[in-house]
């Protein structure tokens, strides 16, 4: 009787894999997953590549240091995957108008409200790598700032997205670490719906 466990367990597992493959194949883009993800925390990979991510809290000085956020410059940082910026910095870059903002939260959350002009780039959805590639292929200057954000607090999705951008060649990725909740508190421009 004991010997039946292994074949039955394998049968259950195979059935689960078949059902998972079938439902994933039929799922829409917001619910589909690639079978192999690329979410590894990058510290090891960045270290192996001879670079290091900026530790939390090591963000550049905020606009409160005396320089206005709008006029503050954000030079490229090819040795770091990202730098963290404050809400003042993010607001200044947004007001300047030329900076790309990317929202790393789930698309259904993005649609409920996002920074005006920000594009949906959920790191948990299957098309994120295609979106990163498409952004790269737009031919924009990769040394110009790109701001990524998620839900603030302990949300790490913006950092994961920053790594993806860094690995395709963007060397001025800025993580707005306090994210959308901070933006809302500041009463800055918000847009709802599926479009930026």
């Amino acid at each position: 009787m004991r010997s039946r466990f292994l074949p039955e367990a394998v049968l259950f597992l195979l059935l689960a894999i078949v059902l998972a493959a079938a439902t994933n194949a039929l799922a829409g883009s917001q619910r589909k997953l690639k079978w192999v993800g690329s979410y590894d925390l990058p510290a090891e990979r960045l270290a192996a590549a001879g670079v290091a991510a900026t530790p939390s809290g090591a963000a550049p000085a905020s606009a409160a240091s005396g320089t206005s956020a709008a006029s503050k410059s954000f030079p490229p940082h090819p040795d770091k995957a990202w730098l963290e910026i404050s809400g003042d910095d993010a607001a200044g870059l947004h007001a300047a108008g030329s900076t790309v903002f990317l929202d790393a939260r789930r698309t259904n959350v993005y649609e409920q409200g996002h920074i005006a002009g920000a594009r949906p780039f959920s790191v948990w959805e299957s098309d994120v790598d295609d979106k990163v590639k498409a952004l790269f292929q737009e031919g924009r200057d990769q040394s110009q700032p790109v701001v990524v954000y998620c839900s603030g607090g302990d949300c790490e999705d913006s950092h994961t997205l920053a790594q993806k951008l860094y690995f395709v060649g963007f060397d001025n990725v800025l993580v707005y670490k306090d994210g959308f909740p901070d933006w809302q508190k500041r009463n800055l421009p918000i847009h709802s719906g599926a479009t930026p």
Partner: peptide
Amino acid sequence: VNAMALVLPWL
């Protein structure tokens, strides 16, 4: 992570 997220619920 993804493979686990797809298969575990069905299991």
